[in-house]
């Protein structure tokens, strides 16, 4: 007796048997261009510095969805694919930014109807008294329908130390919608790696309903410098050569200090450098030209507290 016939004693139909539709040909490349997904992916590559493994995973997901779409058009796929994702990584590694782009990718591929991103945290989902949580969570879910629901710091939903916590109620509603309305919305959970791991082991329902776990690595020093320069360029600033060298030192020093938050730390550093630059120009009390207004010098970076010890 073979494995396939143990249960019923009848022959099991061969999966993937030749159907009339299956012989039709689909040009995946043409489909790829039709969805303009290459534009989004190219933009992703250009706009986001580093994050190689993340980009590769997104490409994989995009390819999978494209193939799924082709299979669907031939009637080979029945149920919609599970697209719920978990983004784990340290603070400031670009989880929210990527989620925004993910919404746009899923929209282009036709897996969400509207392609908007609703970003929430525990406060938006969990109520303060009995009977407050369900309407709140449902309200958020309704707003996210047709798009992507991004739950930042998702592990706060579950508070094991308090058994009366209303977070559990929100989790149950979420799980139900994630399972039953897969075609209506995609849920992305985000948070720091180790705490998400605890969260998933306490809520096995979530782990099994999430198909794609994407881990965001920390940026390397050179990448952080490049990110800061991109940030500055977007705001119409530039670093002179001395400032760029100072920035490299800054990244090394900042990384050793507590509460290092990757790109977010760099944004804050840039914001403070801007303040110092303004102060320098103001106190110099001399006419300034465009170049002076644009340039951040080494002094502004070196003045940081990070270098003080």
């Amino acid at each position: 007796m073979t494995i396939g016939t143990i249960e019923t004693g009848q022959a099991v139909p061969v999966v993937g048997a030749e159907t009339p539709a299956a012989s039709a040909r689909i040009d995946l490349k043409a489909l790829y261009h039709d969805t303009q997904i290459d534009a989004v992916l190219a933009e992703l590559d250009a706009a986001l510095i580093g994050l190689k493994p993340v980009k590769r995973r997104i490409r994989e997901i995009a390819a999978y969805l494209l193939v799924d779409k082709a299979r669907r058009s031939l009637g080979l796929a029945a149920t919609p694919p599970t697209l719920h994702m978990a983004f784990t990584g340290n603070p400031g590694t670009g989880k929210t930014t990527v989620a925004l782009r993910m919404a746009s990718i899923l929209h282009r591929l036709g897996y969400v109807r509207k392609g908007h991103l609703v970003s929430v945290t525990r406060d938006d989902l969990v109520g303060q008294y009995i009977g407050h949580t369900a309407p709140k969570t449902k309200e958020v879910l309704k707003r996210a329908m047709g798009g992507v629901l991004f739950i930042d710091e998702a592990y706060y939903l579950y508070r094991p130390e308090n058994e009366k916590d209303y977070g559990q109620e929100a989790i149950e509603i979420l799980l139900q919608v994630m399972e039953n309305q897969r075609e209506d919305l995609v849920v992305i959970l985000a948070g720091y790696g180790d705490r998400m791991e605890t969260f998933f082991s306490a809520n096995p329902g979530f782990r099994s309903r999430i198909a794609h776990h994407i881990d965001f690595p920390d940026y390397e020093d050179a990448e952080l410098v490049a990110i800061t320069e991109t940030l500055a360029a977007a705001e119409g600033y530039r670093f002179d050569d001395g400032a760029r060298a100072a920035l490299v030192d800054y990244v090394t020093a900042r990384r050793r200090r507590p509460s290092f938050a990757n790109a977010r730390s760099m944004r804050n550093a840039f914001d403070r450098a801007r303040l110092r630059q303004a102060m320098r120009l103001f106190e110099a009390d001399a006419p300034v030209d465009g170049e002076a207004l644009r340039t951040i010098t080494a002094a502004e970076i070196r003045a940081s507290r990070v270098f003080s010890d």
């Binding site: 109807r113 509207k114 908007h116 449902k138 879910l141 309704k142 707003r143 329908m145 047709g146 798009g147 309305q181 209506d184 919305l185």
Partner: peptide
């Protein structure tokens, strides 16, 4: 603030 009819249908 809804974007999609699915929420109302629910």
């Amino acid at each position: 603030d809804l974007r999609d009819a699915a929420g109302v249908m629910g």
